[in-house]
Computed example of a mutant assay.
Amino acid sequence: MDKPRQRRSSGPRTFDRDEAVEIAMRLFRRYGYEGVSIADLTGAIGIAPPSLYAAFGSKAGLYREALDRYAALPGALEGMAGAETLEEAVSGLLEAAIRSVVTDERGCMISTGLVEGAPAQQDLARELRTRRQGLRGRIAAALRRWLSVEDADRLAAYLLAVQQGIAVQARDGADEAELLHIRDEVMIGVAVRHRSPAA
């Protein structure tokens, strides 16, 4: 799909910063950091490059604001809320992850937005790695209700890898039914390996 572009009117134009970050988030989510150019951003937002630099400092600055907005959206961890068993928690986590990537943007800024980058983007790549590690830690903390610390950490690492794979599959065009099959296969393994006691 072609990236959306908006014709700019002549003369200076004020813009809504919140709307600009929302537009940027949608572009970055769909195409990744390196897949979105300054021209794409200014065209979609409807401003000139100097206005973008004045407001956000750089493309990376706008990306960070878009990333913060994305991180505030309902995510996979919300799917674990209210779970009474390990199986419910894992299933809820993966179902929420699937719902979050079968949108029009079909991507995850944290999982696939910038895995590797040019030397100039290493700070941003490190920031995303830190966010992924933080997500893994939060998943592990939630799983400790049913598992030992060691087992929770191992399962969290596995589930994060599955989430990243789901995001890539969605970007490649997998639909919700296909992604739910992945969830089902994971659940078989969880049921075999882990027997959670009644809460």
Rank of each mutant, 00 (worst) to 15 (best):
I139C: 04
V115S: 06
L124P: 05
L143N: 02
Q163Y: 09
A177V: 14
R132V: 07
E116A: 13
E178C: 06
L147Y: 01
A156E: 05
I182R: 12
D151W: 03
M187T: 06
A191M: 11
D153M: 02
A170R: 00
V168N: 04
R171I: 01
D175P: 00
L128E: 03
I188S: 11
V186Y: 08
A152V: 07
G137L: 07
A170L: 04
T130Q: 14
A177Y: 10
G137T: 01
R183E: 14
L128D: 04
A161N: 03
R132I: 07
H181P: 02
Q122H: 14
L135F: 14
R144L: 03
L180Y: 11
I166D: 05
W146V: 05
A167F: 00
A118P: 05
A167Y: 02
I188Y: 13
L155Q: 01
A167D: 09
G117K: 10
R129V: 13
I188N: 09
V149R: 13
G134R: 04
I139F: 05
V149G: 06
R138N: 05
E116G: 07
L147R: 06
R126N: 13
R145Q: 07
P119V: 12
L124S: 09
A141V: 05
A161Q: 00
E178A: 15
A174V: 04
L155P: 01
H181K: 15
L128V: 13
Q122W: 15
M187Y: 06
E116T: 14
L155Y: 08
G134C: 07
A167M: 01
V149D: 14
R145D: 03
A177T: 15
Q133D: 14
A156S: 09
R183S: 09
G117F: 12
Y158G: 08
V162G: 00
D153V: 05
A161L: 10
R131W: 07
W146Y: 00
A141F: 04
A177L: 13
A152G: 02
D172T: 09
E127K: 12
G117M: 11
L135H: 11
E185D: 13
D184G: 10
E116Q: 15
D175I: 04
V190T: 08
Y158Q: 12
D151S: 08
A142M: 06
G134K: 00
A120M: 12
E185V: 12
Q122F: 12
Y158F: 14
V168D: 03
L159T: 08
M187K: 08
R136L: 11
E178I: 08
G134M: 02
V162F: 05
Y158I: 08
G137C: 02
R138H: 06
L160C: 10
Q122V: 11
D153Y: 01
A167W: 02
Q133R: 15
D153I: 06
G137A: 01
L155D: 04
L160N: 07
L143M: 00
V168G: 00
Q169K: 13
R144T: 09
A120E: 15
G189M: 12
R136Q: 15
D175T: 04
D123K: 13
A125T: 14
L135E: 15
D175N: 15
R131N: 03
V186G: 03
V149L: 10
L160W: 07
D175L: 02
D153L: 07
A191T: 11
L128T: 10
L147N: 00
A156I: 05
D175C: 02
L128Y: 00
S148N: 01
Q163F: 05
R154T: 10
A156R: 01
Q164W: 03
